[in-house]
Design a protein around this nucleic acid. Structure first.
Lengths: 136, 136
DNA sequence: GTTGTTGCAAAGAATTTGCAACATA
DNA sequence: TATGTTGCAAATTCTTTGCAACAAC
């Protein structure tokens, strides 16, 4: 049986290297968004041999392929494995857990506002921040 | 008559210095969000003597006082003078113009989703990106 | 064997800080 | 005059790039 994630990498046109599989595996295990620096540190502490540059490049490549969502936290980027298609987020500001949500009402609102103001929509983002049940 | 902006600064507990008034004045004149680096360069080219550090500190202070909205663009922060209270944004990705919008439906959605998932809401953000009528 | 990938060291770029001179209230 | 502000230079921090060794296909 093949290591988890190999197919996803190949689908993205990336070679299934040990480092990339390690990153994918680590992302699968966590519900929160993580920065390249933090992930690198954690992997190293866990005994995984991987360079910081590789972590940066892997996270960038995966998000370019649409496999990761990207968040900006205190001026740095945090990544999280995500599902297909467009979705919004419910983010816990304490543990950084991210829950994906879909919202027809938001999509509708976007279209209406843009049309009314004469804009051609290229994208939108609607995230909710709060404290999750566990953190309260 | 007093220079534009002096009162706003005093209200924020900041001294009305020449540099801060210059920044405020520049912000009042533009419909787009601007970075500290860009604003500094433009002020310098316009003959205004002001240091980059001061521009950074002024923009940070003004946004801390709620006078400016902050956007993240390509990893750097862009600022724009904004109105009171909570609002959302319609952003032109070509000219960076920002229009403020209010949306009852979004506020309602936020409350519903958070409650349903057991989150205590601390904030939310809903911005629409597109190309404005002028830029098309 | 080819070609993509890795990782170190170095470079870049945005932002912050120390501190002495200076301006505001 | 007392205290907040400025601005330069230096330091920080996040991120990217050059390039030779290396691994995947």
């Amino acid at each position: 049986m093949e290591p988890v994630g190999g197919q996803a990498l190949r689908d993205a046109g990336l070679r299934a290297t040990r480092q990339r599989l390690t990153v994918l595996e680590a992302l699968r295990e966590r519900p929160d968004a993580v920065t390249a620096q933090d992930l690198h540190m954690e992997l190293r502490q866990a005994g995984e041999p991987i360079g910081l540059t590789t972590v940066y490049r892997t996270l960038t490549a995966l998000s370019d392929s649409g496999l990761l969502d990207v968040f900006t936290r205190d001026g740095e980027q945090a990544f999280r494995l995500c599902g297909d298609g467009h979705h919004h987020h419910l983010v816990c500001e304490t543990c950084n857990r991210v829950e994906e949500i879909t919202a027809q009402e938001v999509e509708r609102w976007v279209g209406q506002v843009a049309t009314r103001r004469g804009y051609e929509v290229t994208g939108h983002r609607a995230d909710i921040f709060g404290i999750c049940a566990d953190c309260r």
